[in-house]
Amino acid sequence: MSRFTDIYTTLFKISVAIMLQYRAVLIIWLIGLVLQPIIYLVVWLTVAETQGGQVGDFDKGGLAAYFIVLMIVNHATFDWHMYEMGYRVRTGAFSPLLLQPLHPIHRDIIENVAYKFITLSVMLPAVFLLIWLFEPTFGAPMWAVAAFVPALLLAFLVRFFVEWSLALLAFWITDTSGLNQMYAVASIFLMGQMAPLSLMPQWVQFAAGVLPFRWMVAFPVELLLGRLSPEQVVDGFLMQALWLGLGLAGLALTWNRAARRYSAVGA
C-alpha cells in the first residue's frame, strides 16, 4: 500500500509541475467549461421570462442554482481520455506508458486530479462571480448536502471508468473522432448539460436513467439542489454502484486485449 502512496504523491507533484508550465492553456480550456452552462442558463432564463418566471418545476433562482452546480459537478467529473486515447494510439505515444511497470490508468487518474486541483483557483472565483450575477436560490436539507459528497465522488469514478473503457475502443477503430462526437452529443442531452432532465421529453429521461449518463452528472446536481427524496437518493447510489461495477468490468475485460492489439501505428 505504501508503494502506491509513494507513487501517487510523486506523480502528483510531477503532474502539477508540468501543468503549471502552461498556465494560459489551463485557463483557455476552462472558458468552454464555464461558458457552456452560462449559455444554456441564459436560454432557459429567457424561456422562463416569456412563461411568467417559471419553466417546468424551475423558477429563475432555481435555474441559476441548477446551472451553477452543474458547472461545478461537470468540472469535477469530466475527463479528456476519449480524445487523448485516440491520439496516443495513432501517434504511438502510448509506447513509453506501456513500458512502465504501472498501469497507465493510475497516471491518468493523478493527472486528472492534479488538473482539477490547479484549476480550482479559477473555478472558485467563476462560481462566486456567477452567484453574484445570476442570484441563485439554494434550499437543500443538511442530509442532502452531506450525501452530495459521496455522490460526487462516485459520479467521478463512474464517468472516469466508463469513459476510459470506451476510450479503449481507439485500439480497434484508430480514428475515434466520430465516436467522440456521438458521445459528446449524448452527454449534452443525457447528462443534463443543456437542460435539467425534468424539462426533457419522457423518453430522454428514461434513456438517461437506464444508461450511465444521469449518474455521472445530473444525479449529484439534483441532489445538492434538494430536488430528490431519500428513496430516490438511495436508488441513485445503487445505480452509481452498478455502473461503477460495469465500468470496472468493462475495463478488466478489454484492457488486456487492447494492449495486445496495440501496434504503435505512427511510431
Binding site: 424561456v47 421570462e49 412563461q51 419553466v55 417546468g56 452529443v185 449534452i188 426533457m200 421529453p201
Partner: peptide, 22 residues
C-alpha cells in the same frame, strides 16, 4: 447531418416549453 439533427433537437426541446424565445 448529425450536428444539424442535434442542434434542431435542442431547439425543439426549448420550444416544447415556450412559443417564442425573446
Amino acid at each position: 447531418a448529425f450536428n444539424l439533427t442535434w442542434s434542431l433537437a435542442a431547439v425543439a426541446v426549448v420550444f416544447s416549453h415556450t412559443s417564442d424565445l425573446n
